[in-house]
Structure formats: C-alpha cells, structure tokens
C-alpha cells in the first residue's frame, strides 16, 4: 500500500485531520450558533429556565428533563469538540510556522484562542461549583454563610438626593465564627465583601416597611479563570490588530 493510502485508511489519522481542519471549526461554530439561537427562542417561553438564575448549570441540567435542556447538552458537546479543534489547530499553527517572518501574527490569534478556552473552563468550573443564596436583612440581622461564618449587618446607610433618588448606600458588616469576631468590612455598590470564598452583595435597598437590604451570597469559582481568559483574549486580539497594522504599514 502506498503511504497516502495508508494514511487515508488510518482512523486515528482521520480523526486528527478532522480536528486539525478549519472546516471543522466553521461547522462547529455554525452548529453552536443554531443551538444557541434555538435556546434564545425557547428560554423566555419556558418557566423551567428561571432556575438557571439560582442553580449551577450542571445541577440544573441534571434535574431538568432532557426534552427541555437537549440544546444545552448538545451545545456542551459541540463546545467540547471545538475545544479539541482549537487546541490542536493552535498547536499545529505554532509548530508549523515557528520560523515565519510575521511571528506575532501567528502567535497572537493562538493567545486569543487560549483566552477563549480559559473562559470556557471558567463556565465549566462555575457550572459545577457556583452557589447563590438570597436573603432580606435589616440592621443587626445575622446571616450564616455556607462556609460556617456568621455575618452581622451592623449598620445600613442610604444617601438620598433632594429629588428622592438613591445616590449611594453602605452596609457595615462584622464576621464571626463561634462567637469570635473575625473582622469588619463595608459593602458598597460594586464593592462586595468577601469571606471564605463567598461574596456578600447587596442587590437592592428598600425603605418599606422599614430599611431592609436584599442580600445575595455568591460563590463563583470560575471567576478567576474567566478573568485570566479575558486578559489573554484581549492581549491576543490587541497584538493581532497591531501586528496587522504594522504589516500593512510595511506593505504601504
């Protein structure tokens, strides 16, 4: 048998060729688009999806009938294939073209690809281990965090403008464990308080019947991975843009 014929009949080689193909990436992206488009249409029409706002993704998918969540399962399947495709294509591109003249143009899309994969990883991690709990608290109320610490809401202050609009608010909190104070903190808009991997957020403040704060306790284990992914993606894209501009200038 000739070498080419052998390669054509070798199944692992065929699988590798499938994953190394740009055509595969295009088909996978197109399939993913169709699945998400379907999801975007059915989600607002099905009340079951409201649970997605409070539960980790994978628990929601395990508890909800597959007849409703099939597109999410399919999207995760497509994303898994896309991950393999992205990784292999990036490795091949760097290895094949490592001696190319415009090396930054080769490496920068791969950095963006790695950033994208980190963001996917973040969603997977959060999909397994995220937590969200809500409560309504008033001054001097105590909440038990899932980690075992207690948080005491010592003081809630609201700053109103003369027209009656809320300008700012703060909540002074103190953490305890077993009756021993662990420290104090202040929660402000866009500045939550973190303790034992959990974030304490104030989502809203109401005055009726008396001053109360809507509190959300969250854990988002994928956040760090998402941030790393975001930074890598931006760095890759920015380098790609500058490299392209430089190449254009060199041509001109």
């Amino acid at each position: 048998m000739m070498r080419n014929e052998l390669e054509n009949t070798n199944i692992p080689v065929k699988i590798l060729q499938f994953f190394l193909s740009l055509r595969t990436a295009i088909w996978l992206l197109m399939t993913l688009l169709c699945l998400l488009f379907y999801g975007a249409v059915v989600m607002p029409a099905n009340e079951e999806f409201l649970a997605l706002h409070t539960e980790p993704l994978f628990r929601f998918m395990a508890e909800t009938p597959p007849g409703i969540t099939w597109w999410l399962w399919a999207a995760i399947g497509v994303l898994s294939l896309l991950t393999a495709n992205t990784l292999l294509c990036s490795i091949e591109s760097v290895v094949k073209k490592k001696r190319a003249r415009h090396w930054m143009l080769i490496i920068s899309p791969q950095v963006a690809h790695i950033g994208f994969l980190f963001i996917l990883l973040a969603h997977m991690v959060s999909g397994y281990g995220s937590f969200k709990g809500t409560a309504v608290v008033y001054e001097n109320a105590v909440l038990r965090l899932p980690g075992g610490s207690d948080v005491l809401f010592r003081k809630i202050d609201v700053d109103m403008d003369p027209m009656g609009y809320m300008k700012d608010w703060t909540a002074d909190v103190e953490y305890f464990r077993g009756g021993v104070s662990l420290g104090v903190d202040r929660i402000r808009p866009n500045s939550p308080s973190f303790r034992d991997g959990y974030g304490v957020f104030i989502k809203n403040i109401r005055f009726q019947p008396y001053l109360v704060a809507m509190v959300e306790v969250c854990r988002e284990p994928g956040a760090v991975w998402a941030l790393i992914g975001g930074i890598l993606f931006m760095a890759g894209m920015m380098t790609l843009l500058f490299s392209k501009i430089k190449k254009e200038e060199a041509k001109g």
Binding site: M30, A40, L52, K203
Partner: peptide
C-alpha cells in the same frame, strides 16, 4: 462586582454570545 456573577442567563447575554459567535464564525 455588582451582582456576584460574570454571567447571567438572560436573553441579552445569550444574544450577545450569539452575536460574538456570529462574528467569530
């Protein structure tokens, strides 16, 4: 920083991802 999560399953977020994927495509 505002709500404790970087992703919400609201129609806007899903459509934003669709848009991003479209231009990736």
């Amino acid at each position: 920083y505002a709500w404790g999560t970087y992703w919400l399953w609201t129609p806007k977020e899903v459509w934003t991802v669709i848009l991003w994927l479209f231009y990736s495509f």
